[in-house]
Write a protein that binds this DNA or RNA. Structure first.
Lengths: 238, 238
DNA sequence: GAGGCGATGACGGCAACCTGACGATCACCC
DNA sequence: GGGTGATCGTCAGGTTGCCGTCATCGCCTC
């Protein structure tokens, strides 16, 4: 699983960004200043780095310059407090791969990080290790899902949706939000999500009146149970 | 966790709104006038602001205008005592992101704030703590309530009502007041509340003649016991 | 026992949700 | 290049569950 290092002193930023990265299938390390950041960078060998320009202790630009001089080619997205053009130019000259001005949308940042990873042929979520939630196992390379021994091959969209919910097991998402997080749309019809949920259910739910895998929380959205819940529910219906 | 600043001089409004925000997984700061509000705004760097148009000291509109002129782009929901169209227009012109006329439903306000936060991609609820009063636990993401191990899924209105009473455990509220604070109505029939109390009781009270969770104070209203009372009452009936 | 307050059960409108089907698009293969 | 099958977004119709309203009944108070 791709590993992303986030170096920023604002806890609000790091926690939010880290949550988004994890939800989209990456691992996130966090460092709050330049010194801790450099250590994590050298020891953790991250697949990408999100780096604040302004840091306590030393400048993020200095850190980046030093790493590049050492021959490190890890993709880096710079964050700057001010959207000044100068910073941007300097940043890219020093060797940043992308640049985002605060305040930024975490979703946009995640998209840019994912793009950088793809450029290096690392797929977010597309891990050699399968993703497991209790009795449910997702194999990204085969695009198959296995629940209680029964294996099913899934269409791409189906797999993406199920994988997203599996990475966020236990959390409820509304159709609109799923449309944004899985489809990447800010428009469009909620029914799109509804129908895909249905197609997934058809493949895994023996009894449509009592969904086990994908439950709907009326008025709120859809939800995939935690590992414990899935195991319990499965044992109950067996 | 997203941080929301509420600026209003009516203590009834701020306490209710703050409680709702917290229940939905956000942090809430409160200020009672324009001066304190501006200080909190600048120092606290909130993720969103709920702002009353009429404030002691200075107009909320002036405050908003000043912040916008300073380049501040924090999402703002305006509250106005009168639902006049003029206010609405002026408010949006000055740079408010949304607008709500008093009396409003706290639930609707929370929904609108959450929508604004999503626009900035700060996710509420991701780390929302369940609300607990002794043996009673409320899970906002699942819309469930658990009392003494027995879990029940609640309808949205039921959940809102129970959550409100749970946040104010030990306090008695009349039907009319609940209608205002939970439904956000200043009109309508008290029986609406009565029926919802009944539906909640049906789900949690084994013996209708001896209510444990929701007691009625004749001539005054309804009341949810404190943590100690609930624990004691539950032990007695077991 | 009359009056008042709350409890109870039922009903209907309405919105949320489910379901099956259709057509467009695209990759693949003969 | 035409055929074939899989995938995916859209839509109309059906179903379910929520919720506000009402009429009736029971119980307490005076």
């Amino acid at each position: 699983m791709p590993n992303v290092l986030v170096i920023d002193d604002e806890e609000l930023v790091t926690s939010s960004v880290a949550a988004y990265l994890v939800a989209d299938g990456m691992r996130a390390d966090v460092a709050a200043d330049a010194r801790a950041g450099e250590r994590s960078w050298r020891e953790g060998r991250p697949d990408a780095v999100v780096l604040d320009v302004r840091l306590p202790g030393a400048s993020g630009l200095d850190l980046l310059r030093r790493m590049r001089l050492d021959g490190d080619r890890t993709p880096v997205v710079l964050l700057s407090g001010l959207g000044s053009v100068d910073d941007r130019i300097v940043g890219l000259e020093v060797g940043a791969d992308d640049y985002l001005a605060k305040p930024f949308s975490p979703r946009e940042l995640v998209l840019r990080v994912a793009a950088l990873l793809r450029r290096g042929d690392i797929q977010p979520g597309a891990d050699s290790h399968p993703l497991t939630v209790g009795p449910l196992t997702l194999d990204p390379t085969l695009r198959t899902a296995t629940l209680a021994g029964r294996s099913q091959t899934l269409a791409p969209r189906e797999f993406d949706l199920l994988a997203f919910l599996a990475r966020n097991a236990g959390v409820t998402f509304g159709s609109r939000e799923l449309l944004r997080r899985v489809w990447g749309w800010d428009f469009g019809d909620d029914s799109t999500v509804v129908v895909h949920v249905r197609r997934l259910r058809r493949k895994f739910e023996p009894d449509p009146s009592a969904p086990v895998l994908l439950t709907t929380v009326r008025g709120t959205g859809y939800r995939l149970g935690t590992a414990d819940e899935l195991a319990a529910a499965l044992a109950a219906t067996a």
